[in-house]
Design a protein around this nucleic acid. Structure first.
Lengths: 219, 219
DNA sequence: GACATTAATGTCAGCCACTGACAGTTGACA
DNA sequence: TGTCAACTGTCAGTGGCTGACATTAATGTC
């Protein structure tokens, strides 16, 4: 809300500020170690040592090693959901999804820069996509996100998400496309926000044509 | 190939037969324990003890605890891929996918019954869908499958999967729908093959309409 | 049928992620 | 300033997983 405060909400007391600082440091240290030497090769003890806290303290901030790897991702997702909640009601569902993704990419610097440089986050994202254990976690998280998006869309359209499968189906398809784009990006060598934004955009353009019965006479 | 032999390929020597038996027993014991008392609550030592081998031996058959939970699933997937490879070339991509899934469900008893009762596998599937750690693994496996299916479809249609995003996009959407169906099934109380077959069928029917711009005036 | 070869298994020691319990320290607030 | 509550460190322990080495058992050969 107020851009003068570091980030997030209140942060009033000294205690809260200290906590926030520890958390941020842990995230930054973790991402730096992960991207430098790999996720598996980095132990939790190392991360804790880099911030000069005990291993036990690490696990009080993050319920497991994976979680710290997704801390920034989570902020981006929150931003996406926020955008989606504010799309005009007359926008078509798929259009609303697309616009929200684009807006989230455009505002990424503002969302996360107080904690980690965007460039580090991008490298971290690439690392996630190339580490089996993290791919798995990433998928599960996407699944939870899907659920939330589906409910949001259903409400927007005045449907019951539990009875009408269309919201889930659309979100499932949307998510599949997003994953495909993320994967393609991470395998390329352009590790920039601009390039993934571009890729997402063009992949989403294919969601209609890809479902057509006939691919052979189209190009 | 030859239905008189237990399953899979050769199995000639006594050694190979013994190995197969140990593997099958581990799978059965694991699924029984998992479904009875939960995945997390079951230790690898317990599974090994139930088959009377050492824990170390368990890890020589399965590279981790998750893997044994998906051993049967893997056979079903193999069956699906086999179906897909044999669909007529003039069938539209989405139709080929749908037919293959249906065929895989129809032939599931024949595929797995030599190892575990279908009913146990169904309960195991439900357990997977309600265990966070396994959901994650499930997602990752789906991802790998997606890759394979996309390449298969691309070849079928004479496209280059690395240059044309349509195969990936379609498979992403398809997979999303399949997951949504699996999830809905696992949350219901009809734990039968027939019911998931039915559900899959009807969810796939929605893949077209769900992408339409307007949901409100359709029903 | 005895013998060397090779695969499968068991045992043991050890790493790492993660947790519960308890004690010590340090902000918050009257 | 003293009390309370939150935060942290230490320690001991569990469970997943691995490498190294010794043991056992199937196989192919003479």
């Amino acid at each position: 809300m107020d851009p003068s405060t570091p980030h997030e909400a209140a942060l009033c007391g000294l205690r809260a500020r200290k906590k926030q600082r520890t958390r941020d440091s842990l995230i930054r240290a973790a991402l730096e170690l992960f991207t430098a030497q790999g996720y598996e090769a980095t132990t939790v003890d190392e991360i804790a040592a880099a911030v000069d806290v005990s291993q036990r303290t690490f696990f009080r901030y993050f319920s497991n090693k994976e979680e710290v790897a997704f801390a920034v991702q989570e902020m981006v997702e929150a931003r996406f959901l926020e955008e989606l909640r504010h799309r005009p009601a007359d926008e078509a569902p798929l259009t609303a999804l697309r616009s929200s993704v684009m807006a989230a990419w455009d505002g990424i610097a503002a969302s996360i820069e107080p904690i980690v440089p965007v460039e580090l986050h991008m490298r971290a994202y690439q690392m996630i996509e190339s580490t089996p254990a993290l791919i798995a976690a990433h998928m599960r998280r996407s699944c939870d996100l899907e659920e939330e998006i589906a409910r949001l869309l259903a409400r927007r359209e005045g449907l019951d998400a539990d009875r009408d499968p269309r919201p889930r189906v659309l979100v499932g398809a949307f998510n599949g496309v997003m994953r495909a784009a993320g994967k393609a990006w991470s395998e390329g060598d352009e590790v920039t926000v601009a390039s993934i934004r571009e890729l997402t955009h063009s992949y989403l353009d294919h969601i209609g044509p890809a479902l057509d019965d006939n691919w052979r006479e189209e190009r």
